[in-house]
Design a protein around this nucleic acid. Structure first.
Lengths: 340, 340
DNA sequence: CTGTTAGCGCATTCAA
DNA sequence: TTGAATGCGCTAACAG
């Protein structure tokens, strides 16, 4: 409970000096007084009062981490290991950089703005922001922001962002399926934002097909329902109806794994009757049988990078690249059958 | 960026009145002035400065949520859907109660104390705290705390906590295995704290065996390594060596599911050659084949309850029970075979 | 019911 | 290299 003032008295110096020691203002304090003050600081178990700090500097050391829920499936976003993995990575990195983490979920840009003003946030990590909202925020926020897995409209502003090379991911998985002899495939998306993650992945698939002179248009694009039972119905329909799809491309391991078990329940054998691919390469893809051929991404690095980029941005350091596109690669396992 | 002062000027009242309106101090403001002030507040898009608020009240509206890592497997805690599910529940509840959430992971009680002082935390939700540390914290913290999935030494203090009826869970799953004809079983634990979650579950198993006049002692208790390969070796050994265990009781679905796939890889058929049970009833238990017979718990409610309890505690409201033990039940699926 | 005043703990002038 | 003075925006005690 001791304050700077009390420490100053004990050390026989002024509050200013203590403050200077605290803030590493080395040039303004002699080594001797510094040592003396530091000793008292430790002895008194001094802890700063961030309220006073905010009031004086108009800047907290809090980094707001905001997850946009809207585009995600509400029921399952929490069970998706992606969330906890990236959150864990972000938390570690924020702590290591000496900041504090305020976690918030919303789908309203006003709330983001208000939070940032109320707490004088040092910076913001925004996850899964729809392009319409990301533009609004970036225009008005006035503090360093890094977007994760978000897309933007082309408005000439500079965006700091970390995301996957989604189109490449779609391209690679489609090429893999083509090389395994598949021609009739569907793409099952989590969301339908344009521009957006799933749209880019779809475009990647399309590109791979076009290179082979094959057609892959929007009639191959389906958005998944958020209702488990409805999804099940869709899967059943896709394997039963014409045209007979030989492979289903999912945009998330979670759904791909779910589909594998649901299809097996209705007597469809994977990959004999239909091949399945995922996206993420998380625990689900390794756990389910057959294990999933999927697109690998490094989620931990994504979170880490986002925070590192943000802290550089906060300190005003120059960053080489404002938009980072993390690489992806196909991880071949057992859920895709070679067609003859 | 407008302040109370500016709003007061615009409304033609004093800052105090604005403050009273803001704080819902209804009895001190006439309905008319209140309406007037509220209009200006909205018009000015007023956002409070929490720094000033903290400084004046010595109380932020931040609830610290701290996950203790030590007892958990570091590599996988992040991939465990339990973490994100309970975090999600906690976040929603904190927000709905009008508080802010500061997320932190640590294994050091000093850090908890410092954080609480630095930010004048309104309250604390502590997860997975080892009993030794929980006692230290509860003794010295001085602010409302709710422990989740934590155990305490008996020191006469009052603890607010939400946890599972772990012993009951162990008891029920053991009884189920006994009813299926199993006599030779092992318990594989995540940690070895006494008192602690896994210890209680083990005691539950023991109780079930004792009721049947059977022996179930500590030679049936194994702590799992944090290394994936070492775990694999252990599983292989357990099914190969004497005494031939007919069932393996896991204290987490995550490991149970992992074991199923790892055992299958070395040619062991589940549940034909050995039965497996989990704990948690999360997505893993439903995804893996055979699906897991496991102990169900309501993780979302656990998080929700913890925050509700905490906010009551903060407001000084009386709570019926300070220690909540959430019920569990056995969810029978396909990973346990009936022995004849 | 309303306004005036003081002070919370810190960083930051500016002066010594 | 050190210190004294000021103000950040808010709440709470008190006076009207």
């Amino acid at each position: 409970m001791s304050t700077i003032k009390q420490v100053a008295i004990k050390a026989g110096v002024s509050p200013t000096t203590v403050s200077n020691v605290l803030n590493g203002n080395v040039s303004k304090v002699s080594p001797d007084t510094r040592k003396k003050v530091e000793a008292i600081l430790r002895q008194e178990n001094y802890a700063p009062n961030m309220g006073a700090h905010i009031l004086a500097t108009k800047n907290s050391r809090i980094i707001g981490v905001i997850m946009f829920m809207e585009p995600r499936r509400d029921e399952t976003v929490l069970e998706d290991p992606f969330s906890s993995t990236i959150l864990g990575a972000i938390e570690v990195e924020i702590r290591n950089h000496g900041y504090f983490m305020m976690l918030h979920t919303t789908s309203d840009e006003e709330e983001v703005l208000r939070l940032s003003r109320t707490w004088k946030l040092a910076g913001l990590v925004l996850l899964f922001v729809p392009s319409k909202i990301s533009n609004l925020i970036n225009k008005t926020i006035g503090i360093p922001v890094v977007f994760v897995d978000s897309y933007f409209l082309d408005d000439g502003l500079t965006y700091h962002s970390v995301r996957l090379d989604d189109q490449r991911g779609g391209y690679e998985i489609a090429k893999h399926l083509l090389s395994m002899g598949h021609r009739n495939i569907v793409f099952l998306a989590n969301d339908t934002f344009i521009p957006g993650t799933d749209h880019s992945r779809f475009l990647g698939c399309q590109q791979a097909f076009k290179e082979q002179g094959l057609r892959f248009e929007s009639d191959r694009f389906f958005a998944l329902s958020r209702d488990r039972e409805e999804r099940k119905v869709l899967y059943a329909r896709l394997v039963a109806q014409e045209p007979k799809y030989t492979a289903i491309v999912f945009s998330a391991d979670y759904y791909a794994a779910e589909a594998v078990t649901q299809l097996q329940e209705i007597g469809i054998s994977i990959p004999d009757q239909v091949s399945i691919t995922g996206f993420d390469d998380n625990i689900f893809s390794r756990l389910v049988r057959p294990s999933l051929t999927t697109v690998h991404q490094d989620v931990f690095m994504k979170g880490q990078l986002a925070v590192t980029l943000l802290t550089k941005f906060i300190r005003g350091e120059p960053v080489e690249e404002t938009e980072v596109w993390l690489p992806v690669r196909v991880e071949v396992r057992d859920s895709v059958r070679r067609l003859d």
